[in-house]
């Protein structure tokens, strides 16, 4: 093979053809290869986004033939809508809380399971099964667990914390916390797996050297292992931010965004506005705002990542 490639090279050069010619011979044009994915994915998605942008300037119920053009009125309505600002607030809280706790738990689990405990495989399965299960299937289970007569209150009463028992999902003050807890329950497995892979790459000599220097377990976790897996932490930040913006299944199925909008997210608000309420124009304006936030966030996170020159090593 090498000899034939060398002959081709010399033949090329002998005929006085430049490197560009050789390059184009070896790297044929690839439009046909990317076309199906582009036409299909970019076509469908950008068409939908453009269509949404158009609908966002309408006052329309989605089916009636009469359509009123209202310009940017739907956007003005969104900025004046307290529920819209509430969803932004919930999204931010959700990102901070789920990212912090999932990351911390995933890191601790990965470190503990790397220390070769007994039955390590079982613990891994217990952490990862929640990732695999559909939120839609688990939603009725969580509604049951956190109901007033559910297992969570039962548990509190049996460990002597009966005073804390309360209708978790029916109060504005606690419903969001439950939604976040469910999200963390389903997301920690991913951060665990990623940290686990990243920790496998750490040079054991570095850890041994630290041990010889007298660094204890905590010290090694903080000063050596944590800095070594920073790329994974940054990747998880991106994932959590995307996840927070896409939140829909859990709040919609567990609390329907309530009580009193306490668990309303952009996704649930857009769905409820567009489909059951039929305010298609307003829903489209909210969609466009969601897209703008997602795009800005992607640019910011990407810039932050490139600046630090961090790479995922997972």
């Amino acid at each position: 093979m090498t000899s034939s490639s060398r002959t081709a090279e010399t033949a090329d050069r002998a005929q006085g053809r430049g490197a560009a010619r050789r390059r184009s011979f070896l790297r044929p044009t690839g439009y046909a290869w990317i076309l199906p994915a582009l036409v299909f994915s970019v076509g469908l998605l950008y068409y939908s986004v453009g269509y949404t942008g158009y609908i966002s300037t309408l006052n329309w119920n989605g089916t009636a033939p009469d359509v009123t053009h209202v310009g940017l009125a739907n956007y003005a309505k969104a900025f004046g809508d307290p529920v819209f600002w509430l969803t932004i607030q919930h999204t931010a809280i959700s990102f901070v809380v789920t990212f912090t706790l999932s990351t911390l738990l995933g890191f601790v689990f990965a470190a503990l399971l790397h220390s070769r405990p007994w039955f390590g495989g079982l613990y891994k399965v217990a952490l990862f099964v929640p990732v695999v299960l559909a939120p839609a299937i688990m939603a009725p289970v969580f509604r049951q667990i956190f109901a007033n007569d559910g297992q969570f209150n039962w548990l509190l009463e049996h460990i002597g914390l009966g005073a804390l028992a309360q209708p978790w999902l029916a109060q504005s003050g606690t419903a969001l916390a439950v939604i976040l807890a469910i999200t963390i329950w389903g997301g920690t497995g991913v951060s665990f797996i990623l940290y686990s892979a990243a920790m496998g790459q750490i040079d054991p000599e570095q850890l041994e050297a630290a041990e010889l220097d007298g660094a204890g377990n905590i010290r090694r976790l903080v000063s050596i292992i944590w800095p070594n897996v920073r790329g994974t932490t940054l990747a998880l930040a991106t994932l959590s931010a995307i996840g927070a913006l896409k939140t829909f299944d859990i709040p919609y199925l567990v609390t329907v965004g309530g009580p009193n909008f306490a668990t309303e997210f952009l996704g649930t608000l857009i769905y409820r506005t567009s489909i059951p309420l039929g305010q298609v124009g307003y829903g489209a304006a909210l969609s466009i705002l969601l897209l703008v936030i997602a795009l800005v966030m992607a640019i910011v996170l990407n810039a932050g990542r490139n600046k630090r020159g961090a790479r995922t090593d997972a």
Partner: peptide
Amino acid sequence: PEVVLLTP
């Protein structure tokens, strides 16, 4: 997010 595709 898939929710923005619903109406179109």
